[in-house]
Write a protein that binds this DNA or RNA. Structure first.
Length: 313
RNA sequence: GGGUAGGUAGCGAAGCGGUCAAACGCAGCAGACUGUAAAUCUGUCGACAAUUGUCUUCGGAGGUUCGAAUCCCCCCCUACCCA
């Protein structure tokens, strides 16, 4: 019934997505669907720049604090669940606003995935072991013999995509190349307006640097220490992807005596900048985004929010 | 004042007579990416022409040599040690 378009606000980290989405939600009485692979985990707050509780209380946010660290949740899960959730929201006659920067989550939701099988933890673990013992070369040659086309798209060094490609062969009994013949298509009929927040690179990097400093002031180190203690064993096994997150892994390194605190914090800024660059590359080259200048102050946010409201109501 | 170790491209760091515009790492820039994606991986990286090309570099100034980042001399800085 309510088939109004859904506003998507994406962009690199620290570009101001959350604030803008919050504003639009307030103005429209909408709810926010977070497309963020890390904010979904409880206990990862400061380092993921999760919206503060005041915002979470004022506007309903989905996919925030919904999982325990270590619980599986993937881009595929997000793509299907988020579409379901948006439908539910729309059925209540409420606008849904998607906001986030997790590249593959967004692509999955907006463009869908081919009919590839989900990852199987057992197969995955076995392949990772094999990778460690026999080396990437061996696995690469195997992939090359079964699915030369896919092999050509990746390089023989160690790569997640190599493992995933082999995993698919084991689970599905056929190759990625074959499965991707059926083009990716979204499994829903939601209409999206995809907007991206952009700003000069130097400004973005400056915002990132300052945000990192702010996180430290807000208690990031303590937060990381709690996680480090609680997930000591998982960290040793390197099994929990949620913990391989910028803002935490650098501090874990520090706690383990591999670097001093100053270096660690500098690296957080640096890795966040690197990440922002990767996001930008992905969004520009893979998704169809209408880019907007990111508002830099309160009144700018209000003004842009107003404009966006018009487009979805 | 004496001694020792150093000063190399944005930073760190190799090179120690030719094959050096100078290894490698980081940053930067560009890119890939179909279920771990804040992950994983690739290219490029003195300047300029942008395919083999030209020009200016290895603290500064001289010198030796066909040829120097690499050898010699003087000077300037830095670190540590002894006074």
């Amino acid at each position: 019934m309510n088939n109004k378009p859904v506003l998507v606000i994406l962009g690199p980290t620290a570009s101001g997505k959350s604030d803008l989405a919050f504003r639009v939600a307030l103005m429209t009485g909408g709810e926010i669907v977070s497309a963020d692979s890390r904010q979904i985990f409880r206990g990862m707050d400061i380092g993921t720049a999760k919206p503060p509780s005041t915002m979470l209380e004022a506007v309903r946010h989905h996919f925030i604090d919904e999982k325990e660290i270590g619980e599986p949740f993937s881009a595929g899960d997000f793509a299907t669940r988020a579409a379901e959730r948006i439908k539910e929201i729309q059925e209540r006659g409420v606008p849904a606003i998607v906001a986030g920067g997790s590249t593959l989550y967004l692509e999955g939701l907006l463009k869908g995935f081919s009919a590839l099988p989900p990852s199987d933890p057992e197969v995955r673990t076995r392949l990772m072991h094999e990778l460690e013992q026999k080396g990437a070369e061996t696995l690469f040659r195997r992939l090359e013999s079964i699915d030369p086309e896919q092999a050509r798209t990746l390089d023989p060094s160690k790569s997640q995509r190599l493992v995933r490609s082999l995993e698919i062969i084991e689970i599905a009994g056929t190759t990625v190349t074959a499965l991707q013949q059926s083009p990716a298509a979204p499994s829903h009929d939601i209409d999206f307006i995809v907007t991206g927040l952009d700003m000069p690179r130097a400004l973005l990097y400056d915002r990132i640097n300052r945000r990192t400093a702010g996180m430290v002031r807000a208690g990031l180190v303590e937060e990381a220490r709690r996680l480090h203690e609680r997930y000591r064993r998982e960290l040793a096994e390197g099994a929990v992807n949620a913990l391989a997150t910028v803002g935490y892994r650098e501090l874990f390194d520090c706690f383990e005596g591999n670097m001093d605190m100053e270096t660690s914090v500098a690296l957080i800024s640096q890795h966040t900048r690197n990440y922002a660059k990767r996001q930008l590359t992905f969004f520009k080259n893979r998704l169809n985004v209408v880019w907007l200048d990111s508002p830099l102050n309160e009144s700018g946010i209000a003004e842009l929010a107003e404009q966006l409201c018009c487009r979805i109501s």
